[in-house]
């Protein structure tokens, strides 16, 4: 429980920590999702997380 009064953390996940376990490439190629013209990556999901 975040007891702070002025600033609430939505996610404190340290992205850099994912470097140790990441890079498997199991996630979907972003251009196969919907865009084909304007690449966004952060809206993709992690295959490992989905299956864990």
């Amino acid at each position: 429980m975040d007891a702070k009064k002025h600033i609430k953390t939505v996610t404190g996940r340290i992205l850099k920590e994912t470097a140790e376990k990441g890079g498997c490439g199991g996630c979907r190629a972003s251009c196969q999702s919907a865009c084909k013209t304007s690449c966004t990556v952060a809206n993709q999901s992690c295959e490992k997380q989905q299956n864990s």
Partner: peptide
Amino acid sequence: FHFNVDLKGGPCVIRRLRGCGCGGE
């Protein structure tokens, strides 16, 4: 589609460094 962002998960930092992976993967 473009209002989706997974703030608590999503791709690892390695994936985020290079984007779509064109020309490689």
